[in-house]
Structure formats: C-alpha cells, structure tokens
C-alpha cells in the first residue's frame, strides 16, 4: 500500500557547507562521517563565511576540497601553530584544526600541548584511528598494544615502544582548555553524541570561551585490514576499553 497521496519532506540530506562531490576516503572511513558532522555544525551556527579550516598532512589533507570554507594546509604536526598564527590575526574568525593521530600525538605533540596550554581560542578536532592511514598503515602513537601494523608487524610491543597515548587525559592536566571530550563514530548513537560535541567545540570558539578539543575514535578499515563492519566492532571491543568515551572537561564561560 503506497502513500502516493501523502506529502514527502526531505529530512536528511548533505549539509550545505559540505561540497557535493565524491571524497577520496576509503569505504567505511570515519573521516566522511566527521566531515558531515562538522559541516552540519557550521551550517547550524551559520559560520561558513567566517570559518578557516586547517588540514595538515594525513588522509584528511585534502579536506579543504570537501568543506566549503577558506582552507589552509599545514606541515605535518604544525596545524596548532598555523592555527595560532591565523587566530592571532583574525580573532573574529573560526579556526578549525582537523588532525590525525600521527599529526597530533607524534610529530606535533609539542604544538598540540602548547596551543592547548596557551588556551588559544581555537577548535581542535582529533581523529584517532590508531594508525597512519595516508602512508599505508604504520603504527601510530595511538595504536593499541599488540596491534599489528606495517611497522609493528608482530604487534605493538609496549616494552619496546611504549603504550598508546590518551590525548584527552594528557590535555586534561592543563589549566587553559575549556572543553575536552572523547567520542566515536562507529554507530549511530555514538555519531549523534559526536555531532553534539563537535557543535560544542565550534560554538565555544564562536562564543570566545576558549580552547576546545574533541577526540573522535574513527574506523580505518584499510589500515586495520578489516571490513568496515568489523572495524566498527573493533572500536567497541578494543579501542573504547582503552580510550573511554566521555567528557573530561566542560567549563562554561563566566560571561555567557
């Protein structure tokens, strides 16, 4: 029985500030989902014309071709420094530093910690997929113990290379950050929570509340050598136990 007579309303479609073109990400990659959530936030906050998006080296280095705002590339690990330079010049613009785990926790650790410690009024979106995706699946600072990668073929050995680093907990020791949360995009429930968190970290900047950080556990089927669905499950089974989801800090500004 069809409802030809009923009216039809479009209730879900591509966000306006997400460029309508195919993306280069692998099937099942979390970047595509996160791009949607970010552009939904940009649309809702009506800030497309005042946003500057920084894409450092990593799978998402081409993200400025998908997000319809002013874009800027950063050398590997240096996005928080580039963001600092941009924000110090344009205090009224929304600067978004969108980084992967190698970028933020390996080569860019110093920039990550010091931009956060200075309390730069920027938004950092940290996509943690526990691997170097763009270069073909090497071990990242967030690769789990015994996780097999191209550069830990026998499984990550903590005795040799240490345990994975928890970014939220690390930044939570600093005074200045106003918002620190870890989410995931491996199922609809988690995605909806991530959507709220992304809107919050962007809105905090719009309202000048301060440095806001969201870490997002994200699938990398190709890098992990799994099907997309298996990668979704692996986040639940392996990543979330080590990287507990939740909010670590939520300072409301005194003047809001």
């Amino acid at each position: 029985m069809r409802n030809e007579d009923a009216d039809v309303k479009l209730v879900y479609s591509m966000p306006e500030s997400l460029v309508d073109r195919p993306n280069h990400y692998c099937p099942g990659c979390g970047h595509g989902i996160i791009h949607k959530l970010l552009t939904q936030a940009i649309d809702e906050l009506e800030i497309r014309e005042k946003t500057i998006f920084i894409a450092p080296v990593g799978c998402s280095v081409l993200a400025y071709f998908y997000i319809d705002v002013d874009g800027c590339e950063a050398a590997h690990g240096r996005a928080p420094a580039v963001a600092t330079g941009l924000k110090r010049v344009h205090k009224d613009k929304v600067i978004i530093s969108y980084q992967g785990d190698g970028d933020l926790l390996a080569i860019g650790t110093a920039e990550t910690i010091h931009a956060a410690n200075r309390g730069e009024n920027i938004t950092v979106i940290f996509v943690n997929n526990a691997i170097y995706g763009m270069t073909g699946g090497q071990m990242a600072p967030t690769s789990l113990a015994s996780q097999k990668t191209k550069t830990s073929p026998y499984g990550r050995d903590p005795a040799d290379v240490g345990q994975p680093i928890r970014a939220c907990e690390l930044l939570n020791t600093l005074e200045a950050p106003v918002f620190i949360e870890r989410c995931a995009v491996n199922n609809v429930k988690n995605i909806l929570k991530t959507r709220k968190a992304i809107k919050k970290v962007v809105q905090n900047q719009v309202l000048n509340i301060g440095y806001s950080f969201v870490e997002i556990l994200s699938m990398c089927p190709t890098g992990w050598g799994m099907t997309p669905q298996r990668a979704v499950e692996w986040i639940d089974e392996a990543m979330i136990p080590y990287y507990p989801l939740g909010n670590f800090r939520k300072k409301e500004s005194d003047h809001v």
Binding site: I52, R78, A81, V82, G85, K87, R88
Partner: peptide, 26 residues
C-alpha cells in the same frame, strides 16, 4: 600587535605561516 614566544623555532615559523596566510605582515 601580537608578540608570542613559541614552543620551538619550528612552531614559530608555522605560526608565521598562519599569520601570513591570514594576510598579515609577519
């Protein structure tokens, strides 16, 4: 103006990159 002591010379030149990309003399 803005004076900022960076965490390293490497961070500093990338802050220069950002400010210059924003159109400022840096």
């Amino acid at each position: 103006g803005t004076f900022l002591q960076a965490e390293s010379e490497l961070a500093a030149i990338n802050m220069v990159f950002g400010a210059s990309a924003a159109g400022a003399r840096v």
